[in-house]
Structure formats: structure tokens, C-alpha cells
Amino acid sequence: MSLIEKCRLINLPKIADERGNLTFIEGNKQIPFGIERVYYLYDVPGGAERGGHAHKQLEQLIIASSGSFDVVLDDGNQKKRFHLNRPYFGLYVCPYIWRELDNFSSGSVCTVMASRPYEEDDYFRNYKDYLLVRSRK
């Protein structure tokens, strides 16, 4: 299995109710890691891109809590684009995957669950450096 094939959409529980739906996420149950940090992106200007990095150890679940956006995953050999537009689907991203987020709809909210606290040492921020490390694996 290639590294990018480890990344996948996860169908999260959806409890339907005429008063509104509810989705929940419990670490190590619906997703393959414990949750150490949650953050969200919002008010992203039209045409802007986010991401543009990879992680050495961090695992993530990316959710379109509102609106829609695309996530482009790249393992150094192949790329795959995911369109996220439902709050009951999350995109699991494993370590050593370069990610870019684009095509944000107006009013979209991107929620990210992360397996680790913020650690600058865990980032690859330069794509050429990332490719160099990936070529050695």
C-alpha cells in the first residue's frame, strides 16, 4: 500500500433528528488516533490557499464543518484531490503527506483534529526538502 492510500475519507456517525443532525468524534474510536489538539480555519479569502506543508509525526482528521473546500494530498509520488463538503465526512491524513487546501467556498469552516500539540520541529515547510526526505524512504 502506498503512503497516499493510507489517507482516506472516514464516514463519521450521523444522528439524524428533525431538530438538526449531530455528529461526534471520539479519539481512537472513529479515528485512528487520540485527539491532542483541535483548530479551525475560517474567513479564508476567495482564491486563498492554506496548508502547504507536511508533518513527520502528526496525524490529522480534516472536516468541512461548514461550506466546502478541496484538500490535495501528495506523497512525493502521486497526488490525490478530495472535495470536502459534508460535516459527517473527515479526511484522515497520515504523517509524511504534503497537503494543500484550496477552493474554499464563502463562509466555509475547516475543522482539524490533530494527534499532537503544535510542534514546529514536526513540520516540513519547504517542498523540495520534503521530497528529498521522501526519496530516502
Rank of each mutant, 00 (worst) to 15 (best):
D75I: 09
K137E: 13
R8E: 14
Y118F: 10
P117K: 09
R99L: 10
G51S: 01
D121R: 12
I25M: 07
D17A: 13
G46I: 14
N11L: 15
Y130V: 03
K14H: 10
G52N: 05
K137W: 12
L73Q: 01
A54F: 05
R125H: 09
C7Y: 06
S135Q: 06
L9Q: 13
I62Q: 06
V38L: 15
G52A: 04
D70T: 09
F24I: 08
F69K: 02
R134K: 07
S108D: 01
S2V: 11
I62A: 08
R50Y: 05
L101Q: 11
R86H: 15
D17Y: 07
D43W: 05
L101K: 04
G46S: 14
K128F: 03
N103A: 04
N77C: 13
V109L: 10
Q60K: 04
S65P: 00
I31M: 07
S108E: 01
R37A: 06
E59G: 03
L3Q: 06
D129T: 11
I31Q: 07
K14R: 15
D102W: 04
S2Y: 10
S65C: 07
F82K: 01
H53L: 04
H53E: 10
G90N: 07
K137M: 15
G67M: 09
F89Y: 15
L131F: 00
R37D: 12
R8A: 13
L101C: 10
Q57D: 13
R81S: 07
I97Y: 00
V44C: 07
N21L: 05
E36M: 12
Y123N: 05
D121G: 04
L12Q: 09
G107Y: 00
L73D: 02
Y118L: 05
F124W: 07
R99S: 13
L101S: 08
Y123T: 00
K29D: 10
N103L: 06
G46T: 14
E26C: 11
E36D: 13
L61G: 05
D122A: 02
E59M: 09
V38H: 06
T111H: 07
Y42G: 03
C7Q: 07
F69D: 05
Y123Q: 03
R8G: 08
I4T: 01
N21C: 08
R99Q: 14
S65K: 12
L61Y: 04
N28S: 15
A48E: 14
H53C: 06
Q57C: 05
K128P: 01
K6A: 03
N103G: 07
N77R: 15
L61F: 00
R125T: 07
E5V: 09
G51Y: 00
K80F: 01
T23S: 11
L73M: 02
G107S: 03
R37G: 11
Q57I: 06
E18G: 13
R86A: 14
E26W: 03
H53N: 08
G47P: 00
F89V: 14
R99H: 12
K6V: 02
H53A: 06
Y42W: 15
V72C: 08
K80C: 02
C110V: 00
K14M: 12
V72Y: 00
F104R: 02
D17C: 13
K29N: 12
F124P: 01
P87L: 06
A114D: 03
L132T: 14
G47F: 04
Q60H: 01
M113A: 13
G51K: 03
G27P: 14
A48Y: 12
A114C: 08
F89M: 15
M1N: 10
Y39S: 04
C7I: 08
A54K: 02
